[in-house]
Design a protein around this nucleic acid. Structure first.
Length: 293
DNA sequence: TCCCAGGGGCATC
DNA sequence: GATGCCCATGGG
């Protein structure tokens, strides 16, 4: 058994992160019970089930069959997942300057932009979520994961990995239609899987690219990936925290509530607001989503 | 019934 | 480049 302890950085709240991971949706890629987070990962080719909980300002991770050689890979994953290394103090200072937004610095203190470290998962998830309500989107994701993803069992319960591009690339749209994917969504997801398989999209290469717009161009070259999807994947999976998913309905609803913006605010008004948060644009989006709860 | 959901592609002008 | 239409389904 492997046990890892990671002392919290400053301004980190595991509770707030758990809140995000447990928002009353039918999530299939992790589970939470009694403030304990369970997550299946593939570490150096092995499926591992992580038990993650907080105690004494420290994150504790227990991996039943984990090896000591896997510690750094597991730590690296968690640091990416919870945006561990970021110092939120500058963001909170910027929030204080906006009377309408200042409350978020206290209310959601320590909330990290919870990532989707797997780029393929992030892209598929955002395609699935296009133009349908989130409840239904989670239903579609669950069917995709349970039918095509690998899993480990513990306590009679399966814990799933997101399906690999290799697996999805072999499918035909007809294979996904019975699961209530639209023909279009099925085509998009399979096409994205094939782009990974043919190395048209290579996550490690994208992560090294410093020009965010070059990344945007590569992503939007994929069929089914428009501006919203690309910006979403950039902020959630590629650590580009200047990215804003323009067009996002939830973002607009939040700004309507918090700042009285129009339901469909003009682009210039949005850009003017985000210009006040250089480097923290994605965090502002994430916190605004948080405010919708 | 109607409209909207964490949009995007495509045709058309 | 702007606009209109289609996709598919569930929830209010």
């Amino acid at each position: 058994m492997l046990s890892i302890e990671m002392p919290f950085p400053s301004l980190f709240s595991f509770q707030e992160c758990l809140w995000f991971l447990d928002r009353n949706y039918d999530e299939c890629l992790h589970s939470i019970q009694d403030q304990v987070l369970w997550k299946c990962l593939e570490i150096r080719g092995q499926k591992r089930l992580l038990k993650i909980f907080a105690q004494d300002q420290t994150l504790h991770v227990v991996v039943r069959e984990g090896l000591h050689s896997e510690v750094s890979a597991i730590e690296d994953y968690l640091k990416i997942w919870f945006d561990w290394e970021r110092n939120l103090a500058p963001f909170y200072e910027l929030l204080q300057k906006d009377a309408d937004l200042a409350f978020m610095a206290k209310a959601y203190r320590g909330l990290r932009l919870v990532a989707i470290p797997d780029l393929f998962e992030a892209l598929c998830w955002s395609v699935i979520g296009q133009q349908i309500n989130l409840t239904f989107a989670y239903k579609l994701k669950r069917r995709l994961v349970e039918n095509f993803g690998e899993s480990v069992s513990f306590d009679q319960k399966p814990f799933y990995l997101f399906p690999s591009p290799a697996r999805i690339a072999t499918l035909k749209p007809e294979d996904l239609r019975p699961f209530q994917f639209s023909g279009r969504k099925a085509e998009y997801i399979i096409g994205i899987a094939q782009a990974f398989e043919t190395r048209k999209i290579v996550p490690s290469v994208l992560r090294q690219e410093v020009d965010a717009e070059a990344i945007f161009q590569q992503l939007t070259a994929l069929r089914g990936v428009g501006e919203w999807t690309a910006r979403y994947a950039m902020m959630k999976s590629l650590d580009i925290k200047t990215s804003v998913p323009y067009g996002d309905v939830g973002l607009y609803n939040a700004l309507h509530q918090v700042k009285g913006f129009d339901k469909r605010p003009p682009r210039e008004q949005l850009e003017a607001l985000f210009a006040q948060f250089p480097g923290w644009e994605s965090y502002l989006v994430f916190y605004l989503w948080r405010s919708l709860a």
